[in-house]
Simulated scan of single mutants.
Amino acid sequence: MATPPVAGNPEGLSVAAPAQAPGTDMTGICFKDQLWLNTYPLDRNLVFDYFALSPFYDWTCNNEQLRMRSIHPLDLSHLS
């Protein structure tokens, strides 16, 4: 299986989702990357990669800290 892209868009280009400034009203925003979903299964192994593409993703969260160290966020042995 191919490695998921960092991000995807309808044109098939890999680009990062723009980060939203704190306090930004995001109630009218919907996230769905159909190209990614058509290419990769949305399962427990890839769900964090998929949601990292979203403008809602917090790049300072604990899940991202684990992902940067190539540790799956559901590996409970690394959580305290």
Rank of each mutant, 00 (worst) to 15 (best):
L53W: 05
Q34G: 03
L35C: 07
L42S: 08
A17K: 04
L37Y: 03
W36A: 06
A16T: 07
L42G: 02
E11C: 07
C30K: 12
P73N: 08
P55C: 06
D75V: 01
G8A: 14
G23R: 06
T39K: 10
D75S: 06
H78V: 11
N45I: 02
E11V: 07
A7S: 14
Q34E: 12
P22V: 04
M1P: 06
L35Q: 13
A16I: 09
A21V: 09
T24H: 05
D25I: 08
Q65I: 05
F56Y: 12
A17Q: 08
D25A: 05
C61G: 05
L79P: 01
L46D: 03
L79S: 11
L66N: 03
S80P: 15
R44N: 07
I71H: 01
G28V: 03
D43Y: 11
T39S: 12
S77G: 13
M26D: 15
A52V: 02
P4F: 05
S77C: 06
I71W: 00
T60C: 05
F48L: 11
A19R: 00
L79Y: 08
M26F: 09
D75Q: 07
A52Y: 00
L42Q: 06
A21L: 10
N62T: 13
S70G: 12
A21R: 12
A19G: 01
N45W: 04
T39N: 10
P4M: 02
L37N: 01
L46P: 00
R44C: 11
M68N: 13
Q34V: 14
L35E: 02
D43V: 10
N62K: 12
Y40V: 01
S70F: 15
L76Q: 14
A19V: 00
P10A: 11
P4S: 11
Q65A: 15
R67I: 10
H78Y: 15
D58E: 06
V47C: 10
I71G: 00
W59N: 00
Y50E: 09
T60H: 14
E11R: 08
